[in-house]
Design a protein around this nucleic acid. Sequence first.
DNA 1: GCTATCTTGCACACACATGTGCAAGATAGG
DNA 2: CCTATCTTGCACATGTGTGTGCAAGATAGC
Lengths: 222, 222
Amino acid sequence: MTDTSAPRRQRRDASANRAGILAAASQTLAADPHASVDQIARAAGLSRRALYGHFDDRTALVHELIAAGAQRFNAIAQQVDDADSRIALARLTANLWSEAAHVQVAAAIALDEAHVEETATALAPLRRVLAALVRRGQDDGELRTDIAAPTLARLIEETARTVVTRADTASPAASGIAVRTVLSIVGLSWRETAALLIAHPDLMTPPPAGTLAPIPAEEGRA
Amino acid sequence: MTDTSAPRRQRRDASANRAGILAAASQTLAADPHASVDQIARAAGLSRRALYGHFDDRTALVHELIAAGAQRFNAIAQQVDDADSRIALARLTANLWSEAAHVQVAAAIALDEAHVEETATALAPLRRVLAALVRRGQDDGELRTDIAAPTLARLIEETARTVVTRADTASPAASGIAVRTVLSIVGLSWRETAALLIAHPDLMTPPPAGTLAPIPAEEGRA
DNA sequence: GCTATCTTGCACACACATGTGCAAGATAGG
DNA sequence: CCTATCTTGCACATGTGTGTGCAAGATAGC
């Protein structure tokens, strides 16, 4: 039935509220992965009942958050293509950080027993990029070789997650710390890291807005 | 009433069961800080009801775990007194690791909203040692100075926790990875770390049993 | 201003966890 | 072997979270 005379469109405030719920959930769950549906709804300025009008399930809501976060994660991973694995790693971290507000949720939820598996599959592309990066870096003698590639990759991931999850996103110095931490894990001394960052000043100044975020800027709400 | 003719002593199996509950709780909560009392009791081979015969509260049980873990933590911290802060840090990590089975709980619980504050105060001595160590190391030019002391101390702590919490304790290589990770965070290159570990082979072979655990086998209860 | 859409608040039913009371059974230990 | 101690299983009250149904009210949008 191609119902040309559709009874009526979806109201605009409805989709705005839906987006608001996602934003609120992102914030709330990043702080506490076990936050209740009521907490999320309240944070979005809606009632719990209204939330269930937009999402079938609590898990449906979480699914959507993970999907969105993973998409950003993976998109960032695809963009990195520096010849030097150390630069690539640094850029990956820095770019990832610039999206910290959007990915903190995924990072936090990744620790939740109930959704580990889902986040794992969602982040598979990023994992592949990282694994390849580490392997290549070790072959080229740029990264440490005293730790096996898979272990090192995992270590980078866990460390990065820790920094992203438990850092003050607001602080301007945080980005630098994240990058330095990853490069440390990968085997560089802090002076080597400093030299590398001076040689590549673009690492600390993320690409102009738009380049990194192909996802339409979701308009903010109250 | 100094009741000389005490009705009867506490049975021996009772205290054994109490210890069993603590051990089970340690294991279970390390894996999932939100594990139910029933899960813990079952893991100890007892009924939920029996557990409440040994502990007033769920929190009472957690309290005891945190206290025991923190005591081990802090005892280890006190023993480290190397002149070189890098060696001290490495030894601290290695010794801490040798008690990993006992401290994983505290590390896991430390992330739980409900008990952060308690673990924070319980681990205060360790934090002080670490803070002093970092400050001294920076003054002596042994540790990186591009990150402020408090931040670096926090970074070390978070990283160590991550490794302790999310590593395969069984693997013999894990200890080495933990030490290398901490030294990396602190600013050393992986080759510097390797050289340091070769120069101090005692770091990778923890002191003989008994040296590290001055805690007397906790006898009977209150 | 009419109406379909959205939100709200209240009512449930259900599941799960905590903590307690009590009677009946097992058992360590004198 | 006797008995105080311990464990067990059940029932119960309480609290919290999830998901749904329904009627009444607000409001966007034609």
